[in-house]
């Protein structure tokens, strides 16, 4: 019997590291170090993943089917073949969207309580 697929909402809330990894993979496939760089760049240096946190999250996300190892390799001259590349799965993308919507609702609630003004919320 085929296992019932999990709903994206059942993964929420994501840890900060997991959400940042999903965001980093949203536009392209990346290897571990590239994910770290993208997370650091995307958060203006506020979030810096270490190797243990990165690969601990990667392990869990691979297990949950949110990301997958990619078979495609970039240009061989630019690539270190020992690296593994990761990509977002359809489920991972839907989970990222659901988490982003959840966070947006929280921001709206904070704004309604006048904890944030428009410029702070972006």
């Amino acid at each position: 019997m085929k296992a019932k697929a999990r709903e994206p909402e059942s993964f929420l809330p994501l840890t900060a590291a997991m959400f940042q990894i999903l965001l980093a993979l949203a536009d392209q496939e990346r290897h571990g170090y590239s994910i770290m760089q993208e997370v650091e760049r995307g958060t203006g240096g506020k979030v810096r993943l270490g190797p243990g946190t990165l690969y601990g999250s990667v392990k869990r996300m691979l297990g949950d089917g949110l990301i997958a190892e990619s078979d495609e390799r970039p240009d061989a001259a630019l690539d270190d073949e020992r690296r593994r590349y990761y990509r977002l799965t359809d489920l991972g993308r839907r989970v990222a969207v659901a988490e982003a919507e959840r966070l947006a609702e929280l921001v709206s609630a904070a704004r309604a309580k006048k904890l944030l003004n428009r410029t702070q919320a972006g």
């Binding site: 290897h31 571990g32 170090y33 770290m36 190797p51 243990g52 990165l54 690969y55 601990g56 990667v58 392990k59 270190d80 020992r82 690296r83 593994r84």
Partner: peptide, 20 residues
Amino acid sequence: YPAEFRQEYEREMLLVFRDL
């Protein structure tokens, strides 16, 4: 780290550390 974790990710963690 646990042995199974190292077996799976040690090589990549070392690469990341080298890059850092």
